[in-house]
């Protein structure tokens, strides 16, 4: 508890205080109280809203896609088949990579003449080989691909554990009742893992809002090209990189409020036990 207070609550409250000052990281000028000036600055800048929009686009696409894929993978590797341990391991490996290191590797793979496009060229007969990282239309898609690759294994493992917790008796009972595979999935599996599924959904939403490493490293400039992948985290880091601690703190506080609101909002949909 003390630990939480010192390392989490304390710094946060300090950030709230800083967000009302003109504090610079280092400056010979004295720190002044500026009231809501930072907040007004941030909320009236088009960059902030563009970043927020990118955050939403990313979440709206990634959350269902990633959770769905995680569920599908979990069901697949849950089969009692030869080699399922191998696949479980393979899908989980990206989790153990540092995301920033993986982003550097991906930036090479996503080079217009890189491995990714070489495969695409074969598959699409040369019809579709975009410049993923320099063309603003495709960069967010590239970021989404990398993000899903990097974190789908985490959800998969949680869902896999959940799947293994569903009693075999229920499946046998369903079989006796003449249910087919889909009906078993729909009426036995899904209800059986609804809590874990809800948990992964919530966590994915929150994590997706923290989108940072990929968009900082993959594009030709952080959040680029031309702000196509700019996010609130990037805005915040850039403000502090520019010495503007007061402004960065106000973005951090706003970010906290947004995520808090989303979390509370989704809590309402939490499945109840009957």
């Amino acid at each position: 508890m003390m630990f939480t207070a010192v390392f989490m609550v304390g710094p946060f409250l300090y950030a709230v205080y800083l967000s009302f000052t003109n504090r610079k990281l280092l400056s010979p000028l004295p720190t002044r109280w500026v009231g809501f000036e930072n907040y007004i600055d941030v909320l009236t800048s088009s960059d902030f809203w563009a970043a927020l929009k990118n955050n939403f686009v990313f979440s709206v696409v990634t959350v269902p896609l990633q959770t769905g894929l995680a569920l599908a993978l979990a069901v697949l590797v849950n089969q009692k088949l030869r080699g399922s341990t191998f696949f479980r391991t393979t899908y989980f490996i990206p989790i153990t990579f540092s995301l920033s290191a993986a982003s550097i590797i991906w930036s090479v793979l996503l080079n217009p003449s890189g491995l990714f496009n070489t495969v695409l060229e074969i598959v699409t007969f040369g019809q579709f080989t975009p410049d993923w990282l320099n063309d603003p239309r495709y960069t967010m898609a590239a970021v989404i691909i990398v993000s899903i690759w990097a974190s789908v294994g985490f959800q998969m493992v949680i869902l896999l554990a959940a799947l293994q917790g569903v009693s075999q008796d229920l499946y046998q009972a369903a079989s006796v009742d003449g249910a087919n595979a889909w009906e078993k999935f729909r009426h036995v599996t899904l209800p059986g893992i609804r809590h874990q599924l809800f948990f992964t959904l919530t966590v994915t939403i929150v994590l997706s809002f923290r989108l940072f490493d990929q968009v900082y490293i993959l594009p030709p400039k952080p959040g680029g090209p031309i702000d196509a992948t700019n996010t609130i985290m990037v805005e915040m880091i850039q403000a502090s990189g520019n010495n503007q601690i007061g402004k960065a703190s106000s973005i951090a506080v706003l970010f906290f409020l947004i995520v808090l609101f989303l979390t509370i909002f989704f809590r309402r949909f939490e499945p109840k036990d009957y």
């Binding site: 508890m1 207070a5 010192v6 609550v9 304390g10 409250l13 300090y14 205080y17």
Partner: peptide
């Protein structure tokens, strides 16, 4: 906890 937090904030502001 609440006490600790208050103390902490005071300390941080003072150090700032």
């Amino acid at each position: 906890k609440r006490l600790a937090v208050t103390a902490l904030v005071l300390a941080l502001v003072a150090s700032a």
